[in-house]
Design a binder for these strands. Structure first.
Lengths: 183, 183
DNA sequence: TCCTGCTATGCAACGAGTTGCACAACAAGG
DNA sequence: CCTTGTTGTGCAACTCGTTGCATAGCAGGA
């Protein structure tokens, strides 16, 4: 498992509260590793008792106190060790691929419904791609490589962009195939 | 959750035992929906008691009997209903993307180790692509569309091929980026 | 002969992940 | 004033998924 490690990376990039982490997981990191806030709070508590991270109470004006977590030396060492381990094959869950194959076992109306749904799904991915591209223009203007950290963040973002472009092209292929059935 | 539905699709395409399903999940479907044999047996048992599938005992020469499962009318109806539901966003878990961002927080030796690991990982994906392409040549020669089922299986396979090609190109980008750090 | 590997099914225990709910204070708009 | 939304933390219950182990017969190579 690697939610702990994703959290370590995120906290090294920028210390923050569980709430903030949950939002980052909805935005940048989350596109490569999803997690809900409940999961994050539970894992943060365990990492805290294991001494990987420490919290600092931060009072705020007009809103609840938060606990800003940052990575300890132990946590940093844990991350370093993990980086040296074998990369596990991705656990892929492409529900849509299963549905497309399932479309062979439904009637014409069902296939039309799937077509509509695929079009909606495509629009979602188009929006994600637009967000990535906007983020790229904002954070990496001119393609100038800054420091190592920026270069690595950028290559991960380029991966996200390539993924979304690939998905969009494939969804067009799926739409054409669904339209071409029993014409 | 959709392991049940992936199993329904697989059994509609071809009835078979839990053992056979586990192997299919390692080959074709499994690239889009992973599952271990223990998980499959448990879900098959539940689907059986729910009346979605029925088993037929098949004696074999020189090896244990197996239970060939096939989909009932109820199961078919369950699948049809599921196909009409909204497609959930994919749950992505790209461990490698997390590691690449984590590489900013390790030393030179750690980054070299990651580089070697990425190269190994790339070779795995190259092998998967080769297997997909071989499967495409075998099952869909000449690009001639057969029946609906074949057309849908083919478009899913094309998705797998596009995914692997995208991953390979991105891994080259990652390798170049890692090599370019602190030159 | 022994060991490894394949076909075939399954239990038990644990850890990961999801869903639903709760509390608390403030801000902003209708 | 009331509702909705945001920031912030967390428990409890449940399901899903993984890991380790067990059984059993046969095939094939060292």
């Amino acid at each position: 498992m690697a939610l702990e490690h994703a959290i370590l990376v995120s906290l090294l990039e920028q210390p923050g509260s569980g709430y903030e982490l949950a939002h980052r997981f909805d935005r940048s990191i989350g596109r490569f590793w999803t997690a809900t806030h409940q999961q994050i709070y539970r894992v943060l508590a365990r990492m805290g008792t294991d001494g990987w991270i420490t919290a600092e109470q931060v009072g705020q004006y007009g809103r609840p106190d938060k606990r800003r977590w940052s990575v300890t030396g132990t946590g940093h060492a844990v991350l370093t060790d993990w980086l040296r381990e074998e990369v596990q094959p991705e656990a892929v869950r492409h529900e849509l691929a299963v549905k497309v194959r399932g479309a062979a076992f439904t009637d014409r109306a069902g296939r039309v419904a799937l077509l509509v749904e695929v079009a909606r799904y495509r629009a979602d991915h188009e929006a994600v791609l637009a967000r990535y591209l906007a983020g790229e223009r904002r954070d990496f203007p001119g393609g100038v490589p800054g420091d190592d950290r920026a270069a690595l963040q950028h290559v991960v973002l380029r991966g996200g962009i390539a993924y979304e472009r690939m998905v969009l092209a494939w969804l067009d292929d799926v739409l054409a195939t669904l339209r071409g059935l029993d014409h």
